[in-house]
Nucleic acid binder design. Structure first.
Lengths: 390, 390
DNA sequence: TGCTTTATTGAATCGTTGC
DNA sequence: TGCAACGATTCAATAAAGC
């Protein structure tokens, strides 16, 4: 079951939606959800409400410049990307296109939203520079390392074994962007997730193919890549926009992970493939996708309230883990440390001679001869609050 | 001894040099070698002869924009890069600077030369876009993955665990650039070298420090990184230009690998450190660095990574278990056995007159008088890289 | 001397809340 | 709006110190 808070927010957002068709006609009062908009992504985004999406994933044309056809050593032809949508007259044309869609993406992003743009060396430098020029604030560049890349058949370069994603906030001042740091760390052997991700390319049964066995889309991204992006930078119920939807990997993964999604795609074949694909997706049970509470999102508790609640008595003695320092709890929730009176943090800092200190983990109380951090008392107080709220 | 052909070419180049001082005064008829030019890199490069260098390695200022001081969880202060040389008023100023030095670098590059530029997400996108605008033809972007990066202390982003190098030819038509494909392949388990390189950051005894233990330069690059760049994209006797010479890693590695070098540096302290450092470098014997035969060779195994990691030194002697055969370790990870150059397997087979051989168990190194198979070193290397093995 | 423990450090665009 | 307080946060390698 979706949590009550998230469910309510999502329902509210749903009710604000003005249902629209699949064409570009008419204005939008709010932003659609869980649909594929037909048409050019700039025109489509222009009609979306500003500050309405929580996350953008964009896989724009790479502007590959393959002058000639490429043959493998056995003389077979490499099925290169030569679609019309990847053709631009020159860098200036590509830059203008890039500026247009990025500006619109930025407009529809909530202040707390972030954007991922994936590309290769053909286009990612232009994309990144334009993002900076538009005011995006880059948080990381992320390297998708492919464990099974296509080799360089001519032996004239290094194997092009990675693609680059730029992760950016809407602007420098946006400090409250969604980043599920703890969840990613837990998923990575309790080490913080690095900027290089090793993932296989999209193949096997995941790769969409037509009746004749031809791949439906030349650059279909692996769902594992989108899963990490969406888990890292959104919450259940959030709206994920993909302006270059293709065959809908973003929508499929978003639906599975309990996020809403919105795709924009010009090509009818891609839209049809995406629609069928997403319809077959079964969302995961809510308990598997609910974001774990992080310390940052827990309600703040004043140390004084622990004293008021009787969890710690005025006059009690607190010590650090090694019993080197002693402080006495005052009735007003401050501590007294050899004549100095201050907060648990200030006294902890003073005791250690440091500029700052987290008093919750520094100070301990004695219970049955053993020491426990006063953070345990805070957890107890939060537990009581939670019970009282129900 | 250097080979006759290479030696002659080098001598000829030397004779063309007009000796210059360390100031920016006066024109240059040709390009100096094995010196550090004092001054601004744009002005200095303007005085170099056009089409005179074979390889450029550039580590320009990254334009970091640090808003505040950063403390570790233990409250210690992070020693961030806040040098004046990394300060620019805005993106436009950084772009203008970048355009200027890149244009000069391109002018002095031979048609067959390539350039490596290293940067982070702060600057690399602007650098890459400007390179494309100036006509450079990007061959690869290469990711330097750090196995020991600084963590993200606030838990607000992914660990910034890599830097990016752009490798480019002077223009699209330059097809004859130097790329030692076979040597790199032999050094990488007989697999093509990928675009992601795992290397430790510069530390330990390699890191230059002043008398008080402070690092001489805040961003000294590891020699292993430069070694792979120089081995990949130059030949013995070639001239390697570094317009942001710093403490001279490029010069040190170039000299060791039998390349000529030219550095440009504004800071007198950096220049002095670089000069002393390079003077202490002993070039490797020629047989360890001569370009390997270009014909496709039998399968080889990743012996080069042991050399890069310092587990076995270039020039070291390997013997078989009964000390009947001796081979010398080359800097590119191949072995030299009485004039024949090949992989550890090929040389082992040749020594025994057998069609094939497992070099890992055939060849031994000497440690404290005892012999041990180089397979032990491979195990050690694997242990070190366990983090990255995934 | 050798092993264990502790301290230091590296290109970093690294908060939020309430008065 | 600015300022001060709260309080959350680290991985690997190297070097130094302790035993």
């Amino acid at each position: 079951m979706r949590s009550a808070r998230v469910g309510a927010a999502r329902l509210k957002a749903r009710n604000q939606v003005t249902r629209i068709g699949r064409t570009n006609e008419g204005p939008l009062r709010a932003t659609a959800r869980n649909e594929i908009l037909c048409g050019d992504c700039v025109a489509s985004m222009e009609r979306l409400a500003q500050e309405s999406v929580d996350l953008v994933f964009a896989d724009p044309p790479y502007n590959l410049q393959l002058a000639n056809r490429l043959h493998r050593p056995d003389q077979s032809l490499v099925d290169a990307v030569d679609n019309d949508w990847d053709k631009f007259a020159n860098f200036a044309a590509y830059d203008a296109f890039t500026r247009d869609w990025l500006a619109q993406a930025r407009r529809v992003m909530k202040p707390s939203a972030t954007i991922f743009v994936i590309g290769s060396y053909h286009n990612i430098f232009r994309v990144g520079a334009i993002m900076q020029d538009l005011g995006f604030w880059i948080l990381n560049d992320i390297v998708w390392r492919k464990n099974n890349p296509m080799p360089n058949f001519r032996g004239r370069r290094f194997t092009n074994a990675h693609e680059t994603m730029i992760w950016a906030a809407r602007d420098q001042s946006a400090k409250n962007y969604t980043f599920n740091y703890e969840a990613l760390k837990a998923a990575n052997e309790d080490c913080q997730m690095r900027s290089d991700w090793l993932l296989p390319i999209c193949g096997g049964t995941e790769r969409l193919k037509d009746g004749a066995g031809r791949k439906t889309h030349p650059t279909q991204k692996p769902e594992a890549l989108l899963a990490r992006v969406i888990l890292a930078a959104s919450s259940p119920g959030d709206l994920v926009l993909d302006p270059f939807f293709g065959t809908g990997t973003t929508g499929a993964v978003a639906k599975r992970l309990g996020r809403d999604w919105l795709g924009i795609e010009r090509d009818g074949d891609y839209r049809a493939a995406a629609r069928a694909r997403i319809a077959a997706i079964e969302p995961l049970p809510n308990e598997t996708i609910a974001t774990a509470p992080s310390k940052r999102t827990e309600p703040r508790i004043a140390f004084a309230s622990l004293v008021e609640a009787g969890l710690i008595a005025p006059g009690a003695t607190l010590v650090d883990a090694r019993r080197r320092h002693r402080a006495v709890v005052r009735a007003d929730g401050a501590l007294s440390l050899s004549g100095f009176v201050g907060s648990i943090h200030k006294t902890g800092a003073l005791a250690q001679g440091l500029p700052a200190c987290n008093g919750w983990t520094f100070w301990h109380y004695e219970e049955k001869g053993a020491l426990a951090p006063i953070d345990d008392l805070r957890a107890e107080a939060r537990e009581r609050l939670k019970v009282a709220a129900e």
